[in-house]
């Protein structure tokens, strides 16, 4: 088992629309975070290749493409699971993000569960010297900001 960070909020849109916005418009709602840099270079634009096995890529300003992860579960419009790794992670470390879309009345509850960040080694630059709890809280806050941007994007 690995530690997990969970955040959720409601989006004023159908599940189908919320799922489509999450996957198809990640280039617009995604915002980089200095604590969780995907690469040491200037941040780029994210995109999913829809479907199981599809890549989550970041196209950097210099044109290079960094693969952040792959889609592990593709179940529109209920769920999406993808792997997520930063360039500064140890080579064997992969974390996992599970996104769920649940209808609540006329809205959709979008939840994110990010698992495995506690496996970032204590001396890794990806940890910034933070203990698990603080790193987890910062990760949760970042996902919450991202979900708020998704919410604004999805309506």
């Amino acid at each position: 088992m690995s530690a997990k960070v969970y955040v959720a909020l409601r989006v004023r849109a159908s599940r189908e629309r919320a799922f489509a916005a999450f996957v198809g418009e990640i280039g617009s709602w995604w915002q980089p975070n200095a604590l969780f840099q995907t690469t040491p270079r200037a941040p780029g634009r994210l995109a999913f290749e829809p479907g199981e096995g599809g890549r989550l890529t970041e196209t950097l300003p210099n044109g290079k493409i960094f693969e952040i992860g792959r889609i592990l579960t593709w179940s529109p419009p209920e769920a999406l699971v993808f792997s997520w790794r930063q360039a500064n992670f140890p080579p064997d470390l992969v974390t996992e993000v599970e996104v769920r879309f649940e209808t609540v009345g006329s809205e959709t509850r979008v939840s994110i569960e990010h698992r495995g960040f506690d496996r970032v080694p204590a001396d890794s630059v990806a940890r910034h010297g933070f203990p698990d709890q603080l790193l987890g809280l910062r990760l949760a806050e970042w996902w919450r900001e991202l979900l708020i941007r998704l919410k604004d994007n999805a309506r």
Binding site: M1, A3, K4, V5, V7, A8, R109, D118, D132, R144
Partner: peptide, 16 residues
């Protein structure tokens, strides 16, 4: 009530 944030450690214990 709706859960909006949960941190769990590797043993599944609630942290926050």
């Amino acid at each position: 009530f709706e859960l909006v944030l949960l941190l769990e450690d590797a043993e599944g214990n609630l942290v926050h």
